[in-house]
Design a protein around this nucleic acid. Structure first.
Lengths: 348, 348
DNA sequence: AACGTGACAGCAAGCGCTTTCTACGTGTCC
DNA sequence: GGACACGTAGAAAGCGCTTGCTGTCACGTT
């Protein structure tokens, strides 16, 4: 039925061992023999049996990429960059690795299960993207799992996620706190004193860090924050829309709205506009991430650009062992404030 | 070193066969025995060896999803929907399948190589999304590969891709031609007679079908098309920006620009605005796909909504054998015209 | 002329699991 | 009370590949 190594061997008049060595190319094989084998492979249309090969060799060429939401370009861009370095077919790398992206949907259980699945497949490496969930129990479970993976020789790289010390993972984190602070400081310098903040889901590190940066900026300028100015939601446009209406209801005198990310900011803009407010004349709006569509918003969105592509590529290279991990196994990547039309001084 | 089935068996005082049966749950095992085994599994922290299991059972729980560009929400949304139905951890389905998305970057070679990799892993199913490349040679190679996969028992589903007859694949195609026609007809009804068209890459089916729909609408209304009115580019914002400037250079009297998709349309809007033209007063703009950000564009984008989530979910279910394939193995999914602020009658 | 030395090729032992077939009680029925 | 079925567990034969080790030549060396 299906063609096996033995079939190829028979046709090429060599032993299975030789065929295997030709295919893996890590053992001297005479040119003439190699040719004969390759010809047989071609004629028989032979396709290696991955599982069998992985079993015998005790390694696989699978590399897992975990993302929170594959429909969100934030993750898509990182995944794309990681994958381009992982190799995969046609990638920059040599070997043919199967880079697979797994969508956790932000669910802690799924995250864990995917890790187990990857462990089960004896993945060569795993890259975890995006913020982590801040639940002590889940964090412990994750750390243990990561520890197990690294112990088993799987390289684990975190991209945009805080370090899990003692787990053997390499971390490339984003300076969300610094970015958040810089962004809010920009608004304060423009003269804003009453700033609404639309945060992401409560329990995520990314959410907390960005919010902390925002608050640090307020504190640094002696602005006392009104609890009504902060609303939590999801990282999507819809959430930004609803949260903004809520914010407006709570305090119609706000002169600026800072959003957890660009999608949320877009939703905020829509809500403001529908409420008859002009941007930035009546209310300034700021986002985070600088996704491709942000520059096309009207007015263009002031935001913090995160080097997603660069960070992803680097994470990919580290995962493949083609770049030295940062000293200490952790490094923080800074964002860059992009001042655009959606922010201006408050109405007089 | 690593814990194996045999270790668990020893600890639970049963045979390896019994452990396997407990884990797979398709054979009667006494409750007390099962419990003992499960306890041992837990204590030993046993993780099944995927490759070994796949080898012995001659099947795997891998499901591949091929996308052209993972950073593009168009694909992200579909992938997300497919994955939610595939199961994956926490998905609606029961079994734990590893749904993996592979990014071809639109490259024919990569597409083929990924298919081989998936074949090598003995994937349970494969879903191909997005348009196909219209190169006779590549098409033949793809068809042959798909044929081989289906012959080997891998279910292959095409989502948003024209049917490859005789390959055994199930096809869910988008009615790009009809959508394109409807969109352009809307513009014509508004009174436009000089319409620019920014197409996608030449050799893609999606590009061709949308363009054909556009031309059909023009023809149906007796409008003779000027060859200068069509520019080809990529499916991204940058391309839309550049193509629009080119279009304006070629014929500054155009009153409408139809874009290959929403990202392109956004780029077009930016270019028009920078050229001092108002939307829709001076020039109307229309997109395709209705991605989430399109409604937030200013003015909101008139476009054709494609039911990406529904189609993806359906493709996923079919791939899992949980839904009957459409009769004849192919069905066309219609888009819905969304008329919004970016289109209006031409200036008088 | 005998012998070390590479360069290749083959043998065979697994890798860790699944699954068919067989074996062994019990409970049941006539 | 013996035959039979039923429910459950084990033995063992692979699944298709990799790789350590063992040949076997054809040379070059002394």
């Amino acid at each position: 039925m299906t063609v096996t190594l033995a079939d190829v061997a028979a046709r090429a008049q060599v032993s299975p061992a030789t065929v295997s060595r030709v295919l893996n190319g890590n053992y001297p094989v005479a040119a003439s023999t190699r040719e004969r084998v390759l010809k047989a492979v071609d004629e028989l249309d032979y396709v290696l049996n991955g599982p069998a090969s992985a079993l015998a060799a005790a390694t696989s060429d699978l590399v897992g990429i975990l993302v929170n939401d594959i429909a969100d370009p934030f993750f898509g861009i990182m995944a794309s960059a990681i994958q381009s370095e992982i190799g995969g077919p046609g990638g920059r790398a040599g070997g043919e690795r199967l880079a697979v992206v797994c969508n956790t949907g932000g669910s802690p259980e799924r995250e864990l299960t995917y890790l187990t699945l990857l462990q089960r497949q004896r993945a060569a490496a795993v890259v975890l993207t995006g913020g982590a969930v801040e639940d002590a129990q889940h964090k412990a479970a994750m750390d243990a799992k990561v520890r197990k993976l690294t112990d088993a020789g799987t390289r684990v790289v975190l991209c945009g996620r805080p370090q899990a010390p003692e787990t053997g993972a390499i971390a490339l984190t984003f300076d969300n706190r610094g970015g958040g602070q810089e962004l809010t400081e920009h608004l304060i310098r423009l003269g804003h004193r009453r700033l609404g903040y639309i945060a992401g889901p409560e329990e995520r590190t990314t959410t907390r860090h960005r919010l902390e940066g925002h608050r640090a900026a307020l504190a640094a300028h002696g602005i006392e924050e009104d609890p009504r100015w902060t609303v939590h939601g999801r990282y999507d446009r819809r959430s930004g829309y609803e949260a903004t209406l809520e914010l407006l209801r709570r305090d119609p005198t706000l002169t600026a709205v800072v959003a957890a990310n660009d999608s949320v900011a877009l939703g905020a803009c829509a809500a403001l506009r529908e409420s008859g407010l002009r941007i930035p004349e009546d209310v300034s709006v700021a986002g985070f991430d600088d996704l491709p569509f942000s520059v096309d918003a009207v007015p263009a969105l002031t935001t913090v650009r995160l080097p997603l592509t660069e960070a992803g590529a680097r994470a990919g290279r580290i995962a493949m062992g083609r770049e030295e991990p940062p000293p200490g196994g952790i490094t923080s990547v800074r964002g860059e404030l992009m001042v655009r039309g959606s922010t201006a001084g408050p109405r007089a």
